[in-house]
Every structure is written in C-alpha cells, then in structure tokens.
Design a protein around this nucleic acid. Structure first.
Length: 599
RNA sequence: GGAGCUGUGGUGUAGCGGUUAACACACUGCCCUGUCAAGGCAGAGACCGCGGGUUCGAAACCCGUCAGCUCCGCCA
C-alpha cells in the first residue's frame, strides 16, 4: 500500500507517528517559503505543511503541485501550533510534515472546480462524470447509497429473507411500460425484453416455496425521463408468502424507520407510525397520489357554497357536477394590488399548462375594515363569504385560490399549485421525512382510449376481500389491496397482496380486455404455476434511487446515481447509444430503417 | 408527440440594437514562513451553441436547428 493512513482519519493521537498518506491536491496555499497543502482522499482532508528551510526537496516538489494532482506524502504527524488549529476540519488539530512529496500522477486543469460545490453545467457534469463524482458532496451520496443497500441486505437477512437473482434477459409483456428489447442471435427474429421489474419471477419464487425473497434489482423501462425517473433504475424488490397487507407494511415501515434513524438522525419523521391515507382522501385534498405532506396547502371542497354565489362559471360548473375547490395560501394576500395581480397571473399561466381554463382568487385584507380584493369577491354575499372563510379556515392576509373543472383537471391544478407554492414560499422543511401510506386504490381505472378497464397497479393485484363481488357488478368500485409508501412528494415504494387463486384471476382478464386465449399466450406460465399449490403471498418494491434522493435531500435522481443518462437517454461521457457495426447487425438479423425526416 | 426555460473566456454570471463584451472564481508568472474560500502585484484567455434573416449596425430582434434542463403526454 502506498498509504498507511487515510487523510481524514489523522488526529492528535497520531502525533509523532511516521505516516504515508496519498490522495488528490484539494488546495494549495503557497506563501513562498511555506506551502500548505490540503490533501484529500475519500475519507477527508488533511493539511500538509512544507517548510522551505527544513524540507527543501519536498518544498520544490510542493511548488510544482496543482489542483487534482495525485500525490503521496511520507512524513510525520505533528500537532499544529497554538492558535492555528482549524475547528472546521476533523483533522484540524494536526498536520503532516513531509520528508518526501511524490507526484504519482499530474492532472490537467479540470473543466470545473472539483474542490467546490459550485453549480456546474449539466453537460459538463455528464461528460466529465468521473470528475463530478470526485466531489466530496457527490461521493457522500454514492457512499450513502452503498450503506443503505448494505443495511437493507442485513435487515432482510436477519428476518429470514433470501436474496435471489432473476434474469435480465426475459420475456416481453404487453402490459405496462415500453420494453427495452434485446435481439436473440440464436433465435433469429425473436427478442428478449429487459425486466420492468421482477414481478412475475418473484411470484413464481413464492410458488417455489422460498417464502421470503428479496433482490436489489435493476429495472428497465423505455419511457421518457424525468427529474426522478431514469430508464434504468434500482429497486428493492421483495415478496413474502402467508402474509396479509399489514405484514408487508409493518416490515417496510420498520425498515424505513430504522434506516432513517441510522443514516439521517437529524431528520424527523413526520408521524410514527406512518399515517395511512386513502387514495380518495389524498386526491381530494392534495390532487396527487403522492403528495408532499411536509406542508398543508390542502384543497377544500367549496362546491356547495361557491355554486350558490353569483359567479357564473362556478354556478354552471356546480350544476354540471364539477367540483369547486379552494386553497388557502397564508400571508400571500397581504401583497400590494399590483404584486397580487402579477402573482395570480403567473399562477394562472402555470395552471393552464395542466389544462385549467383560468384561476379565480380572493385576497383577504389584513385589516378588518378593508374590502376583499380579487375579481370574484363581488359575486359572493357577505354571508357566503363568511361561510366560505369558516370552511377554508381563512385568516387575515391570506390569498385564496379557486379552481373548478372536470375532477381530473382540478386534481392536476391542486397538485401543481401546491408544488409551485411550496417551493416559492419554502414551505417544505428539509429536515422532515413525511412518510405515509396510501391505501385503498381503485383496482382499475377506466381507459377512455381503450374503452376498457386498466389495472391501476398490475393484473395480479388482489381486490380487498370485501370488494371481490364488485368484479362482477361494478368493477370501478373495487379497491385493490395495494399500498404505496410516499415520502416528501415521491412514491418510494408500492406493492400489493397478489391473486393466488385462478378463479379470481380469470375474472380480471376479461375486464382488462384480455381474452383467455391471449392471457394464456402471455401469462400461461403464471396461470399454470398457480395450479400447483400457490401460497397466499404479497410483496412490495421500493425505488432505491428515490429513497436516496429523499434521504440526501437531493431534488434530482442524477445526483444519487453514479452514471445517469440525460433527458434524451444519452451517456455523454461514453457516447451511448451509438450505431452498431454492420457485422453486428447481420449476426442479429437486424436491418436499420432510417427514421422519416421531418419536412 | 407537445409546452416552457437556458446556451456569452475553463466555470458561474452581467450585458438585451452602437460597449476596447464587464465581473467573480479558476488559470499563468512574480512577491510572500501560519495559511486553511490565504493575500498582494502583473498577465493570458470569448469571433457571445450552430445556420439563415431583419437592420447602416446583432451577443442582443425574427426564423430554423442542435444540446442541456423542467413539465405535460407516457411511466401496470
């Protein structure tokens, strides 16, 4: 080894020891006859002091050092003189006095500063990924990720889970996301699909009697990227036999709580045990099935009151059964008239992007004797206003936003406004983890496009027991035994109890537009397996990347992945994807068709 | 497939119709023996993403295009 110690571990107790440390030049402070060097490795930073008088050779070497050079320093640990310790640094009470300073490798001037946390152009981050990953704050995220995954493995191992790998080359399925396909050379014209999740395989492992399975599983979905979505990502995937919904939820809740306490003890859990909210509840209040519960900004239904006002749009919408919802924004109504008009115009532009036709508002004055501001105040009688204010919990100085439209648009508006306002007003406490369960999802959503029911999770989700009769009478009313875990506005896990009886499964297929013949083609292996003694089972999958985002407080998934892709799905460092050689294509019996040029 | 934002020395930004294109950090050289975002002095470095157009004149205005980002659709 070229090093006897890591830079960040040297303390007063090492004083007098002869050590060898090696790492990168974090900073160099050259005062002529005296050079201070901050040497950095993964463990941290230690100061090296090179005195021209005492160590002329080392001093000469030190003078030539530049940022990000890789050097080895052999020398003695000494206590810093009185008054020169640096309390900011864990190693701040000591420094290394070198006998020799050896450049192991020089470095070009990096394209951005590695020794600062400055914002960097996203393209540069990607193109020089290895340099971005060298930044201490990024290393922290990547190492946290390792520790969390190790914790999960240990936690589940202690509870009798077996980690089992499942194939990356598997079978395409018609349901769900678009598959990444891999051509088969040995079977011309046929394709494997990369797994969207090991869903089917883990259920088959339950049939196989493993009882408790888990996997840190890479998953692939060929859909457009988002700030919290990459085409390949990692899930903690698990499945348990002989369990009911609460068993799976309790396991995950224990895991998440222990993990949060262990890795981010400074962050408070919003509630313990995690609160359980129904799908209907979160949609009506927050317009989202994964609301950020660190702040309120909840929507209140005021259809009855506003529908009786004189505002024609509200009256008409209420008559057509469209909801009218109000959101109270504390303090924002106290702005000047001009600011208010500007703000509300911005908000109106924002909600138009999700399909709203407009945005009504009222600003409540801080002084009692002033009039309510805003375009719709005049349509409400004094009594209606009082009733409204009581319902919504209005305080002086508040701004109240109103939205009314088809229900799904109202939801989108509420969600969009909440996210936007929370960010603008800095309402989300970064030191809170707002874990919550969302339960009682509808088993199906009606697809207008396809004119049929679509499973809201997947086709193997068991209905809650008392809703099984709805499968025949009113499928839209059936709730699934699904549970999602949300935290700070992210869905961090989702699972369900599965159907293990063929009779129930056979009721599902026709509802989602699958004939039995087609179902047998696609899922014959599953149906067949279920006839050989299938235990009741259920499970859950948790997005590791999103979990690390939430724990580290990052707002983008790229910050917690070592080598992520751009929004176009490209790797700017390696230049993937790239065209294949003609020879490779020939081996695979693949011919490339040039995409049609836009005229 | 659609909407929006951004693109100016290596990095982050300013400039938004006429500027020797400004500033900070980084970089180079010199000075400096207790610094730790070291300091001081001097200096180099940008045809303003690319292609058209408007104009006497474009970094700036218009059109197109490329790239990055955010969002909608999509993501069981």
């Amino acid at each position: 080894m070229l090093k006897t110690h890591h830079c960040g571990e040297l303390r007063l107790e090492h004083v007098g020891q002869h050590v060898s440390v090696a790492g990168w030049v974090h900073r160099r402070r050259d005062q002529g006859g005296l050079i201070f060097l901050d040497l950095r490795d993964r463990s941290g930073i230690v100061q090296v002091r090179i005195d021209e008088q005492d160590q002329p050779a080392a001093h000469a070497a030190g003078s030539s050092l530049r940022s990000e050079f890789v050097v080895q320093v052999i020398g003695t640990v000494v206590a810093r003189p009185e008054g020169t310790a640096n309390p900011e640094l864990p190693t701040g009470e000591v420094e290394v006095v070198p006998e020799s300073v050896v450049v192991l490798n020089a470095s070009k001037v990096p394209p951005f500063l590695v020794n600062r946390e400055d914002v960097v152009d996203e393209e540069a981050k990607m193109r020089f990924r290895y340099l971005y990953l060298r930044r201490p704050n990024v290393q922290k995220n990547i190492i946290l990720r390792h520790q969390v995954v190790k914790f999960i493995r240990d936690y589940l191992d202690e509870r009798g889970f077996v980690e089992i790998e499942t194939p990356i080359l598997f079978k395409t399925t018609p349901e769900g996301a678009r598959d990444f396909l891999v051509p088969s050379r040995l079977n011309p014209g046929t394709f494997y699909a990369l797994p969207q999740s090991p869903q089917q395989l883990k259920q088959l492992l339950m049939v196989a009697g493993y009882e408790r399975y888990f996997q840190i599983a890479r998953c692939f979905r060929d859909e457009d990227l988002r700030g919290n979505r990459q085409p390949e990502f990692t899930q903690l995937d698990l499945e348990m036999s002989f369990v009911q919904r609460d068993d799976v939820m309790a396991l995950i809740e224990g895991l998440m709580t222990t993990m949060a306490n262990k890795f981010v003890p400074e962050k408070q859990l919003l509630t313990r045990p995690f609160q359980r909210l129904t799908y209907t509840e979160v949609m009506e209040k927050y317009g989202s099935d994964k609301p950020d519960l660190r702040y309120d900004l909840a929507a209140v239904d005021v259809t009855d009151i506003a529908g009786k006002s004189g505002f024609p749009i509200f009256v008409q919408n209420a008559g057509e059964g469209k909801p009218i919802k109000a959101i109270r924004v504390p303090k924002m109504g106290a702005n000047s008239g001009m600011q208010l008009r500007k703000e509300t115009a911005n908000l109106e532009d924002l909600v138009r992007t999700v399909g709203a036709k407009g945005l009504a508002w009222m600003a409540i004055p801080e002084k009692e004797d002033e009039e309510v501001k805003g375009p719709i105040g005049k349509y409400f009688t004094v009594d209606q206003k009082l009733e409204l204010f009581a319902r919504v919990g209005i305080q002086p100085g508040d701004l109240v936003l109103f939205t009314s439209d088809q229900r799904d648009i109202v939801y989108a508006v509420v969600d969009t406004l909440r996210r936007h306002l929370a960010e603008k007003l800095e309402l989300a406490d970064p030191n809170v983890l707002a874990f919550a369960w969302v339960i009682d999802f509808p088993l199906f959503f009606w697809s207008e496009e396809e004119q049929r029911w679509d499973p809201s999770q997947h086709m193997f989700t068991m209905p809650v027991p008392e809703d099984v009769p709805y499968l025949d009478s009113d499928p839209g009313k059936a709730r699934g035994s699904q549970y999602d875990l949300i935290c700070n506005g992210q869905e961090v896990a989702g699972g369900s109890i599965r159907i293990h009886e063929r009779a129930v499964q056979e009721k599902i297929f026709p509802l989602i537009g699958q004939t039995m013949e087609r179902a047998k083609e696609q899922f014959g292996h599953m149906l067949e397996a279920f006839e050989y003694g299938t235990p009741p089972h259920g499970g859950i999958a948790s997005g590791i990347d999103r979990l690390i985002m939430v724990l580290s407080g990052e707002t983008n998934i790229r910050e917690v992945m070592a080598f992520p892709k751009t929004q176009n799905g490209a790797d700017l460092m390696a230049g993937a994807p790239s065209p294949a050689e003609a020879r490779q294509l020939a081996d695979l019996f693949i011919r490339v068709v040039e995409p049609a040029k836009k005229s």
